[in-house]
Amino acid sequence: MKYTMLLCLSLFFSLFTVLSQAQTKETFEVQKIAPGLYFHFGHHELPNRENHGGIANIGFVVGKSCVAVLDSGGNPQQGLVLKNTIEKITDVPICYVINSHVHPDHVFGNRSFKGKGVQFIGHKNLARALQLRSAFYLQRSEEQLGVKLTPQDIVLPDIMVADSLTLDLGGRLLTVTAHGSAHTDNDLSVLDKSSQTLWLSDLLFVEHLPVIDGSLKGWLKELKELSLLKVKRVVPGHGPVMGDWPAALKPQVDYLTMLLKEVRSMIKQGKFIEQAIVEAGQTAAGRWALFDAFHKKNVTLVFAELEWED
């Protein structure tokens, strides 16, 4: 009798907790960078078991009839919090989730947006990149992020962009552009015409060391074209929103160009990759956050790319 009573009580309380959680859905801070355009700032950290991979800038655009999500976050929970935040700000339904590229901090909130009426948009190479990498990302998710990701977390795009695509959010047009191999081989940028804002995601790094996971030469080429656009502001994948375009691009272009020159000349001198990894580009240390975490990886990739030049 006593136990039944206790059981009932505890059931009651757990039910109560569930209900109260449902009523106060977790949200996070977002900044309004233009009317109907919001972003959540990602801190310059490596993905780890404390931040669970929620380290990138993510955001959303609100039109009259549709909301488009700009990257879903680094884990399902962050995706859910982003969704809650959107629903708190507007009643307009979410129609699109745009995945700027394959990296975990940009796509692993996807699962929380799955549902009727929501379409996922990615570069034509995104599905392939997810297929190639996801087994590895899932396998290490628990150890690295403290979150057990499952195949449910791999959401392949419904709409694949080969060139460019215009989305009508209702009185608001977004141009989604697929780029050649740059930060990765599946990068998208998004131009919000009404606010003249260019959402570059990881095509632009500010303060945080640019990370090469595609092609150095390709990236420099894409940046040259992007620099010609007339926009009021750009949003990087990591770092603050920048107003001065294309001047905001300079530190990144300088770093990438320096890498190109130094590694190219080391290859010409007959130096090996082991030596380049240790020596190349070290003068840039101190100018960037997370230099030690990513610079040697960059040199590795650049060396492997440039040794096929001649």
Binding site: N125, R133, Q144, S181, V211
Partner: peptide, 22 residues
Amino acid sequence: ASGGCSAPIGADLDAAMKRLGR
């Protein structure tokens, strides 16, 4: 092992396929 976004996969698959056999 390295952490973060790094995966044991070539970065630019199309470029590698284009050069295949060189």
